[in-house]
Design a protein around this nucleic acid. Sequence first.
DNA 1: ATGGCGATATTTGTGTACAAACATCGCTCG
DNA 2: CGAGCGATGTTTGTACACAAATATCGCCAT
Lengths: 238, 238
Amino acid sequence: MFSGNGRSGVADAEILAGELQLEAIEKPAERAYQGIRHAILSGALPGGSHLPEEALAQMTGTSRTPVREALRRLVAEGLARADNRHRYVADFSYQELKIVFNIRARLESYASRIAAELITEAEIAELERIVERIDEIGDTADPAQVRLFADLNTRFHTTIVGATRSIQMQSLSAQAISLPLELIKQFVWEQRVNIARSNNQHRDIVAALRARDPEWAESAMSGHILSTRPRRKAVSLS
Amino acid sequence: MFSGNGRSGVADAEILAGELQLEAIEKPAERAYQGIRHAILSGALPGGSHLPEEALAQMTGTSRTPVREALRRLVAEGLARADNRHRYVADFSYQELKIVFNIRARLESYASRIAAELITEAEIAELERIVERIDEIGDTADPAQVRLFADLNTRFHTTIVGATRSIQMQSLSAQAISLPLELIKQFVWEQRVNIARSNNQHRDIVAALRARDPEWAESAMSGHILSTRPRRKAVSLS
DNA sequence: ATGGCGATATTTGTGTACAAACATCGCTCG
DNA sequence: CGAGCGATGTTTGTACACAAATATCGCCAT
């Protein structure tokens, strides 16, 4: 996944299945996608690893057909790259990560600007519920709690992006967000991203939306995302 | 493709093949992709049309496997959308188009900012060659010339985006750009987008890049893209 | 020893058969 | 006459067999 790691083959199928409770996922397509994605993000498949379809099919307990679909999705999301023939795990440099975060800041701040005019009361209420639930978590390093925070955080951002009513915005944001949001889990853990501070920023954003103030919303979101950008040292993993 | 059109079934295979010289495309995967894409952009498949795999396979003269791949690409690019079961031609509102252009402006202006620091002399020379060749076209409504302009224009923008050396930037831009760039062909035709003015803007952008001035480059690119945004009346088609 | 050539193995691409999910229509029964 | 239920058709999902492309290795000739 990240630069500077050695190469390795495909991870052991049983280990992966065990870690992920893959056996619980019914549909092969989803099974293949989640399985490969997890293997990449967890570092089981380091950056640059070759991704042969047959091996991945074995690994995820499906056949090549759903694996092919999964690989296409992953390439589209930027977690894998493809040359003429093969596919490999993407290899992110620090520079690349920085750019992705900046793009995300620009996209989501624009989304917030639009959302300030289009968001419904119900959606604002939803955002407030999310903020309250994050409050209950507080600062912690407990894995389960961190995962819960990551989920709520994702819902917060996708709710705002959804409020733009733009399919293209949702599609582009999803791509730009998927990687940063995964990384946040790592950062909260390793670097102690301040959950409380992050949630205070969430509160500001909700206030801006409630005030129907596009400039404020745009600015608040931009600051929020940029404040969670990784610092250099944090990007050695995994 | 656009709002307000009626529904229709899949276009006639022979007509499509004839228009596109599909028979010249060897590989089924590319054949299916180009064929469906063209059917969508040309309006043969209006916005909201259902996209059944078997029918598209017949239409493009391939089998369902490459069609499935093509559909996934098109969904990823935003030209088609998917619900739980089916896929349909995307339906763009004026609001959606406006957002896409604004996103593109934000993405590419950021790309220009980065490119100002990373672009090579060879790439700058390439941009200058493109500008010169567009100069030779001048303002015209000749379809072949318009197509040539569209190609050169695409190369101009992808060269700059490529100069960021960021895979993610290239991937996101490609998605945000594909639709606008297709539409430009229509606009040049229907609305007489001013090729000369557009190329003068290109010249400014190249000057900014040559001067290694990130702010200027960012600003020039932003203005360039926003100046080509469709006006409301132009979006009735197709 | 080295360069080129051909056999071989690996990987991806394509087509197709079959299964599953879902919607639709019509029938029967109340 | 209407509601519910089941049969039927349509569409997508999955697996697999085979074909094509490409890289690799070893052999032979120079």
